[in-house]
Design a protein around this nucleic acid. Structure first.
Lengths: 184, 184
DNA sequence: ACCAACTCTCACCTGTACGTAAGAGTTAGT
DNA sequence: ACTAACTCTTACGTACAGGTGAGAGTTGGT
């Protein structure tokens, strides 16, 4: 009978299914192997390694055989990376934030600098939000127009005539996202 | 006196400054050179060339010397590319849309297919909007917390104690985006 | 001792969207 | 004809965020 040695860490979206044969030694010591950390935060081992190469994350220690062992705060750190990545920071940019941070002696000054970086990015995020909302509207308008084609158009009509279509009620001009596709 | 031969096309954001020495021959013919097109849509010539390589854009014709000459609808096409890029489409994905489109004989069917692609992307855009709004909130909360440090913190405090800070009124837990930076 | 699962360190590969430069040719005004 | 500005093709380079694989070593249960 092969008792499988399996690092069972509950991933973010996983139904309880494994019989949980053995608790892990590193888990009991409160430390995580790279694969466990990766599973918890939903990243690959490769990604975790990359973050380390870029100076974003360090294992608390290594096992005798040089296995990386992480404290729980590494989970926070990786989630921090993921969120700010989604906010538009590149990994090198995040490294800059951490470096600036580590080289700042007082907490107050560190807070000021972090605030400055976040402030600038908040403005970018707000701009991106405006852009995406505009695109959301345009996609919606295009979908409405395209669904109207279903009843307004005939099977024998070719797409060449779409840019100058007059079959829709009130003859609206096709939205830009429709025109752009049919143009040329 | 050197009368400069300058393709003066008004770029998106440009104050009226050039004396507009000469109107262009191609402009009068209603056709645009690649540099003019690029300036109008705020892209580089290289980008326009790339779009052509990827099958997203074709010049209406070429001059005797093989200069690309574009109709005005190329402007629409490039703007279509830019918007859908911002929506999250890659250039190869846009090529797929156009290919599918060109290979579809009837306008009605083409409309259906375009609608399907837009529908899927609209859902992605909505997800991204949700994510960005969440990040916007988290950045805002972090900024509020960090600004409170300004009055709550002392100069001699080092950043190592930030994760367990108790100097803020009501002793709130630091937001995740603050913790992640100070962790480790 | 043995084995499965896990991890290690290179190191090269992928896709996306261009940037940049070189060397040659074109266009139109003078 | 000369020239400045523009364009052509080709091709290599860049930044980002990992993916993939090789070959070797580690860990812990049986």
């Amino acid at each position: 009978m092969a008792t499988v040695r399996r690092l069972s860490v509950v991933s973010e979206a996983e139904l309880a299914q494994e019989p949980e044969v053995h608790a892990l030694e590193e888990e009991t010591a409160g430390l995580l192997q790279v694969g466990q950390l990766a599973k918890i935060v939903g990243k690959t081992v490769r990604a975790i390694h990359l973050y380390e190469d870029l100076g974003l994350l360090r294992p608390a220690e290594r096992s005798k055989g040089r296995f990386r062992l992480y404290e729980k705060d590494a989970i926070e750190r990786v989630r921090w990376i993921s969120k700010l990545q989604a906010a538009g920071f590149s990994l090198p940019e995040l490294r800059e934030i951490l470096k600036e941070h580590e080289s700042t002696p007082t907490a107050k000054e560190a807070a000021r600098r972090l605030a400055r970086a976040y402030q600038a990015k908040l403005r970018e995020v707000e701009n991106k939000l405006r852009e995406l909302r505009r695109i959301e509207r345009e996609l919606g308008a295009s979908l409405a127009y395209l669904e109207a084609c279903e009843s307004a158009c005939d099977e024998h009509v070719t797409s060449g005539s779409c840019p100058s279509c007059d079959r829709h009620r009130d003859r609206p001009a096709p939205p830009a996202l429709v025109l752009g596709a049919f143009a040329q």
